[in-house]
Design a binder for these strands. Structure first.
Length: 271
DNA sequence: AGTGCGGCCTGTCCGC
DNA sequence: TGCGGACAGGCCGCAC
């Protein structure tokens, strides 16, 4: 599910309800996520204030004075703010109840998401230490993409989905960005010009920022912290539209599996 | 080192 | 109506 805009939407929604509040009780109903929920999570969180909620790539970082809860939504996860009397549904795996009455509820049917605890710098955690730049930061440039891609033979779509290159670009936004940049997703990353990468970097930035403004993309199950879907799906040009007309030239949009992921492109607009 | 693939899970949809 | 198979937004870890 969630790519960067969905995770950022979640972070923004959660922060005002949790930051500065004390955790009262942690309830783990299903500890078997992608990685097991730490058995001592409750004692690490209970009685301590959540000082801040940050995001790095698609990871959410909940900080208290002792350490950081690292959360990831996987493919189907969501985090909502619930009240004490709201019904517990199937796949509501973890609750973090706050002293202010709010409950942070982690829901994840496929259980590809996870919750980990670290007392070291979370950015040095094994899972985060090799991440590339944030796409909305100044470090992310076409020049960097060009540099990193020299001699790389992977299709450019795989390249921009590689979190060592840039974080947060998943399957949907990879297809969409390459469409807007006019680049065929199968092209070798190493053969794309600096000028094309400069344009692509700018487009990735714009596409992600616009999606965040719309509250992310809901294809199936993404909901924000209020349980509401995102609205960016209405603005997708090619993703999920195989067989339909390209919005720019009316040519039929094609789909093709690239790197085991379904990809969508216009054979006329994307060279 | 770079690349490609299997695997982790459940839910949904499609064809028979 | 039921059943098997394919597929779904991520990403680690392994083999080549």
């Amino acid at each position: 599910m969630p790519e960067l805009p969905e995770v950022e939407t979640t972070r923004r929604g959660l922060a005002p309800h949790l930051e500065g509040s004390k955790v009262k009780k942690v309830t783990v109903r299903q500890p078997s996520l992608r990685w097991a929920v730490p058995s001592d999570l409750a004692e690490k969180l209970e009685g301590r204030v959540i000082q801040s909620i940050q995001r790095r790539g698609k990871y959410l970082l909940f900080k208290n004075t002792q350490g950081t809860l690292i959360g990831h939504l996987g493919m189907s996860g969501s985090m909502r703010i619930c009240s004490g009397d709201s019904e517990i549904k199937k796949h509501d795996h973890v609750d973090i109840a706050m002293a202010n009455g709010n409950i942070l509820r982690f829901h994840d049917p496929r259980r590809f998401g996870f919750l980990l605890w670290t007392e070291d710098d979370p950015l040095q955690h094994k899972m985060l230490s090799k991440l590339g730049p944030e796409p909305l930061s100044d470090e992310f440039t076409g020049k960097l993409l060009h540099q990193l891609s020299r001699k790389r033979k992977v299709p450019i779509k795989n390249f921009i989905m590689d979190s060592c290159v840039v974080v947060g670009v998943g399957n949907i936004y990879a297809s969409e960005s390459l469409f807007s940049a006019g680049i065929r997703p199968t092209r070798s990353a190493g053969k794309v010009s600096l000028a094309a990468y400069e344009q692509l970097a700018e487009i990735i930035r714009i596409v992600l920022a616009r999606s965040i403004d719309q509250g992310g993309t809901t294809l199936k199950d993404f909901v924000n912290s209020d349980g509401q879907p995102g609205y960016f799906a209405q603005q997708l040009n090619v993703y999920g539209r195989a067989g339909q007309a390209c919005p720019q030239c009316q040519t039929e949009i094609k789909s093709k599996v690239i790197g085991q992921r379904n990809s969508f492109y216009c054979p006329a607009c994307q060279k």
